[in-house]
Amino acid sequence: MRTRLIVRTLSEICVTLGALIILLVVYVLYWTSVRADRAMDGEIDHLQDRWATGTVSTGAEPPSRPRRHEPGASFSIMYIPRFGADWAKPVLEGTATGTLKKGLGHYARTARLGALGNFAVAGHRRTYGDPFKDFPQLRPGDAVVLTDGTTWFTYRVDRRPYRTLPTDTGVIDPVPRASGFRRPGRYLTLTTCEPEWGHSHRLITWAHLDATQSVAQGKPKALYS
């Protein structure tokens, strides 16, 4: 009788642990994305509402405003046609864990959008909406388009994704050494994790500012092709 109780309790514990693990997998693979997609759509709606109500002045000289964004606040929407015509993600200030659950994160100590220097952005490759799932497919010439409500910024990717170590902070320098850029310019850096489900390395993409236009002139060509 005693052995039977022990065996039964053990098997019940095993079943419980199995169920717990399945629930955790469901949470990580599915639920984080449901929550993140909802949060990202909310941020985009919020931005578009704010821009539509005209709290940002149109036609002002955009790249030289000294305004800093609040940590965790969204200030831009990014479009990457390579990832799909409907791929649009909000860019939030800072790269805190909680911020990256609601969108892409701008490294607060790097340049502002469109400004001289390096505008660096981090995003999840897997979980939390998988924003950078197709990161390795980026190729030279691909467009990375951003808007801050007044101006469209079209960046062009300069080389295939570059694999590096998590400690390689030089990749978000104003002129990253490994990028091939030699002179100061208006650059963009995207970072995500590598391998897809791991954290031993990072994947980096660099781009340079190719064109800007006011939102009054309509969407840039890169978003139509």
Partner: peptide, 9 residues
């Protein structure tokens, strides 16, 4: 879990 490490700094 390791999926949160997407930054370099």
């Amino acid at each position: 879990l390791p999926f949160n490490d997407v930054t370099v700094d």
